[in-house]
């Protein structure tokens, strides 16, 4: 909105410093993501995911969304990846190279992903070629702004989400609880 007109003054051949930083971090992020889905060492996939998610946190910082960036570091890098690592180890994932990490429909997957990538990038380039984000103004996502907005306008969804999170927690505990044989026998007797 604010910068649609200003975009004409900014060419792609004279990038600003923020754009160069965004591009470099984006390349690292994308490379880590590609390694995440292609590496044959299952634990390394989770560790490359850390690099990808950390890179995304830096991108959020560059987009002046500070709070989201730190939430990303806390929740994704801090807990989700740890959960995934625990999942890999509890399912006895092989350490080292496993030749059957990819399933048989890999060519089809490559074709679908490639077609989707071409279509999406083409549409996005066509639609937003001359759109400019002004990131030099006030910070868009500081903790103060996010907190005010979240607890003034988004309170009800926030509370509903906390209930959802609690339900998911209880569900995960119920699902993963180990039922002992005598317990099961007791239930069958009843």
């Amino acid at each position: 909105m604010s910068g649609t007109l200003a975009a004409g003054a900014h060419g792609f051949l004279s990038p600003t410093g923020i754009e160069i930083a965004f591009l470099l971090v984006g390349l690292v992020t994308l490379g880590a993501a590609v390694l995440t889905v292609t590496t044959r060492q299952l634990v390394h996939a989770a560790l490359w995911l850390v690099v990808a998610l950390g890179g995304l946190a830096v991108e959020y910082l560059l987009l002046t969304a500070e709070f989201i960036a730190w939430v990303q570091v806390l929740i994704y890098v801090g807990s989700v990846v740890v959960l995934l690592l625990f999942g890999l180890m509890l399912t006895k994932a092989p350490i080292g190279r496993s030749p059957d990490a990819d399933s048989g429909n890999r060519p089809v997957a490559l074709a679908v992903a490639g077609a989707a990538a071409i279509a999406l990038v083409w549409v996005v380039l066509d639609a937003f070629r001359s759109t400019w984000i002004g990131v030099h103004g006030q910070v868009q996502g500081s903790t103060k702004v996010t907190g005010e907005v979240l607890f003034r306008h988004w309170v009800l969804p926030f509370e509903a989400l906390s209930v959802l999170l609690l339900a998911a927690l209880v569900g995960a505990i119920v699902l993963s609880r180990k039922r002992r044989a005598d317990e099961r026998a007791d239930e069958e007797e009843r």
């Binding site: 993501a33 990819d102 997957a109 679908v112 989707a116």
Partner: peptide
Amino acid sequence: CTGLYGVLAR
């Protein structure tokens, strides 16, 4: 699209 490939191929 990278994630899409991973979902389909892993």
